[in-house]
Amino acid sequence: MVSSMVTAGAVMGVIGVLFSIGLFYAARAFHVEEDERVELLTNMLPGANCGACGFSGCSGLAQALAAGRAQPTQCSVANSEQLAKIAEFLGVEAGPVERQVARVMCGGTSAKATQLAGYVGLEDCRAAHLIASGPKGCTYGCLGLGTCVQECPFDAMVLGPDGLPVVDESVCTGCGICVQVCPRGIMQLVSPEAPLTVRCVSPMAGKQVRAVCQAGCIACKICERVCDQDAIHVIDNLARVNEELCNGCGACVEKCPTHCLELTDGQVRVLEAV
């Protein structure tokens, strides 16, 4: 028993050593000159491998950077310090970086939005959306199964107790993966400084919205009337904010009958440790 274990080990060892010697010489014979900057650049990138830049992970972007086919700013994860370092290494201008964060554009919590049916199935919003546009009364609202939370590569999202996902804006890198996976188009990338958020995406008329959700925009235009900056307008049954004109006074937020407007005040919203 023991002796066969020893021979087994010895045989595998000998085979392994022989092969590694063979591979060693093969590696020398078939050596390929590589751009050594690629490896350095890969190390300089954040290493999140999220693919938000459009390349296959950080090494893919590093190759494109070394070949001059990409700009450092294509990486949405790296902070401006890291980008400046990479740009300096490559000898190019980094350019201004506009930070973006993902925001949940729906206020239809489980208490406020009507549920038409129960959903028993794959815990994935995309699957639920395929079945008659999901179990919710509002066919535009958040399904609350947390596909965005699962797909977030940075753990920047959690599913809140009210059935809506919450973004930790201090962790969010604006990679946009949640925007891509959400079948309802509820996740949107905005500047974290944007003062006002309309938490509804439904283009339905007020009556229909009210029938299925207490938190949706009913296109009553009160916000339009109270705004003295002319910064908010109801277009296609949905309030839309002109971020350049909005000064974040909050007059509309106070008057909005369904509270679908939210003042963010330029504050980066951070989640308490869960």
């Binding site: 066969s4 021979t7 087994a8 045989v11 595998m12 085979i15 392994g16 092969f19 063979g22 591979l23 093969a26 590696a27 078939f30 390929v32």
Partner: peptide, 27 residues
């Protein structure tokens, strides 16, 4: 040596080495 039980491990090792070699060659 009566080491028939090593079949799978040894074969996989050989295949891995060959593929490695092939990869270098093609590259």
């Amino acid at each position: 040596l009566g080491l028939g039980f090593l079949q799978t491990v040894a074969f996989i090792l050989i295949i891995a080495v060959l593929v490695q070699l092939l990869e270098m060659f093609i590259r």
